[in-house]
Structures are given as C-alpha cells and as structure tokens.
C-alpha cells in the first residue's frame, strides 16, 4: 500500500507527461464505471497496457472510480434505461441485441449502458481537467508543499525512504 502510494506520488512529481497521467485517469474512469468482469474492461486493459500511460494512476483511479460507481449506480441505471428504451435507438439496439459480439458486452444491462455512456461523455473532459490540474500542481503547489513543516517531517519518515527508493524505478510511464 505504502509502495503504491509512494509510486503515485512519484508519478505525480516525476517528469512524466501530464497527458499520460490524465489519459490513465480517463481509462480508469471507464473501467471503474463498468462491472469489473465486463468484457469491455478486457479491451480497456489491453489499451492501458499497450498505450504508454501511467499504470499506477490507472490502478489507483480505477479503485476510486469503482467506489464512485457504487454510489452512482442508481443514476447509471436510469441513464441506461432511458437510452435503451429510447424509441429512435430501438433499431440500433435490436440489431446489436441479435449480434453475439455485442451481446457478450452486456450492453442491454442498464447499469453497464449507463456507466459506459457516462464514462464516454466525461472521458475527454476528465482527460483535459486532470492534465491541467497536474500542471498546476507541479508549477504552484509542489514547491510550496516541500517547504511546509509537515512535508519536512514526512521527508524524514520511513515512508519517504520508500518513496525515494521507488524514485529510482522507471516509473511505469516512459
């Protein structure tokens, strides 16, 4: 746990491209908002491993968004039900329903459809937002944080020792 946290801090403070961390957060949201064993998540995992993005940010973000999805499940179900029962889309859904490939994705489940639609809608905004926030953090907050007494204490702690050790790793992102 300490190592993962240390690694995240390292990622956040490293020279890793903020776009790569932001992308990982966006994919984490997509994974977290869908059921864990959803076939879509398999495709997301492939993309996360294949595209150069920060794995620690993805894993931590997925935990966060999975928890958030638990709270938002009623909203997802309502969105999903509204989409799946929308008359203009009926032809599309019927065609997909009769295709094995799409049926495997469980698109006709209201929670899956709602979570997926929500994640797709907020994918780009989250990417841009997290990108901007990381930049702001590095430019303004990091220097100030390092000077605080609390940070001085942390830097003298065992946890910081681990963090320092982790800093020697490649960082997950290229």
């Amino acid at each position: 746990m300490l190592t993962t946290l240390a690694k995240l801090l390292k990622v956040l403070n490293s020279e890793t491209d903020p776009a790569q961390i932001g992308l990982a957060f966006s994919f984490a949201m997509l994974s977290g908002f869908l059921p864990f064993f959803s076939p879509v998540n398999l495709i997301v995992l492939l993309l996360v491993l294949l595209i150069r993005m920060n794995l620690s940010a993805y894993l931590l973000g997925m935990g966060f968004f999975a928890g958030l999805a638990y709270l938002l499940e009623p909203l997802f179900s309502r969105i999903g039900l509204a989409l799946l029962t929308a008359t203009p889309l009926e032809g599309l859904w019927t065609a997909m329903y009769n295709s094995t490939i799409w049926r495997i994705q469980q698109f006709n489940n209201t929670a899956v459809m709602g979570g997926f639609a929500f994640a797709i809608l907020f994918f780009v905004p989250l990417f841009l937002l997290s990108n901007a926030l990381i930049r702001q953090y590095r430019e303004h907050v990091l220097r100030w944080v390092r000077k605080t007494r609390l940070m001085q204490m942390i830097m003298a702690s065992k946890f910081y020792g681990i963090y320092e050790k982790v800093s020697g790793w490649s960082g997950g992102a290229a």
Partner: peptide, 23 residues
C-alpha cells in the same frame, strides 16, 4: 413488459436487462 421491450431483473448483479426482439 415496458412498451414493446421487456425489462427483466437479473437474479444477481446490478441494473436490469432490457430485452429486444430477437430474430
């Protein structure tokens, strides 16, 4: 039933499954 579609509560898991006309 919900209109022409049918909404089926699955035994396990969250959400509900909406069923469409099958060939």
């Amino acid at each position: 039933p919900k209109g022409d579609k049918q909404v089926v509560k699955p035994l396990r898991g969250s959400g509900v499954n909406v069923r469409f006309k099958e060939s």
